[in-house]
């Protein structure tokens, strides 16, 4: 079960900070929920720089970013 980081309603840089904090537990897989394009791009950029591959699925009112250690 991947750790889920719910950053919906948060504006940048908060989603990235929440992701950064979560990544300190060094798991292989995380899910980050964001609801705006800026957060999607910023979290994706940060996760890639931290060595994760990022898959995005668009749901009703949010983006689900799946981070997997590459």
């Amino acid at each position: 079960m991947a750790q889920i980081i719910d950053a919906c309603g948060r504006s940048c840089p908060e989603p990235v900070l929440m992701t950064k904090k979560a990544l300190e537990s060094h798991e292989a897989r995380y899910e980050v929920l964001v609801d705006n394009n800026t957060a999607r791009q910023n979290v994706t950029r940060f996760a890639k720089s931290a060595g994760y591959t990022v898959g995005v699925t668009e749901e009703a009112d949010l983006f689900r970013l799946v981070l997997t250690k590459s």
Partner: peptide, 11 residues
């Protein structure tokens, strides 16, 4: 944001 991201994330 430019300076903040450098300080926070080295971005």
């Amino acid at each position: 944001g430019g300076i903040r991201d450098v300080l926070l994330f080295k971005d």
